[in-house]
């Protein structure tokens, strides 16, 4: 099979790559572009470890074909911090001990970022349902929810 040329924007950079028709965006990110912060937990869209943001929407990148990224804007965990300045969600995840092993963390951060962009003041229930597509086996989610609540409050300017 011949390769397909794809032009896209990833983390504000113009990125072009060649891919096979059956390669997923996850394969492209990890194997062709070296963006290994996006994790594969299942390959079937059930765990959310590969969550990225495509044109403002959270997607499981294992369910997106590389070729579908043509002309799209993609955000991955590698682009979340502003230089050395962590995004409030990243900082709050560390402060609240919202990660143990950390394999699910990039996916959670992507999903939570997308949530706060559409709903800056979510209730606990809204957070829990928005994040229900991301599996964490270590934390029981308690500290993750609290980290998201705290980051949201900070972004809203309610905490110092």
């Amino acid at each position: 099979m011949s390769s397909i040329a794809v032009a896209t924007i990833i983390n504000d950079d113009k990125v072009e790559f060649l891919c096979q028709p059956d390669e997923t965006l996850l394969d492209i990110l990890r194997n062709r572009l070296g963006l290994m912060g996006t994790k594969e937990g299942c390959g079937t869209g059930d765990c959310g470890a590969c969550s990225t943001i495509m044109d403002g929407r959270v997607v499981c990148s294992c369910l997106v074909l590389g070729a579908e990224a043509q002309g799209r804007t993609i955000e991955t965990i590698e682009g979340m911090a502003n230089g050395s300045k962590l995004h409030p969600l990243q900082r709050k995840f560390i402060e609240h001990a919202a990660l143990q092993c950390g394999i699910c963390t990039p996916g959670f951060l992507m999903a939570a970022k997308a949530l706060l962009e559409v709903n800056p003041n979510p209730t606990e229930t809204q957070i829990r349902f928005w994040l229900a597509g991301n599996l964490c086996r270590c934390t029981g989610y308690d500290k993750i929810v609290r980290a998201v609540q705290d980051a949201a409050a900070e972004i809203r300017g309610e905490t110092t």
Binding site: R30, L35, M36, G37, T38, K39, E40, T76, I77, E78, M80, A81, L86, Q90, R91, F93, I94, E95, A97, L99, G102, I103, T105, P106, L109
Partner: peptide, 21 residues
Amino acid sequence: TRPLRPDGVDKVTGRARYGAD
């Protein structure tokens, strides 16, 4: 006490290297 974990930044920025990385 409850200080920040030393591997925290690596794990929230995607830099931490797991088995498949």
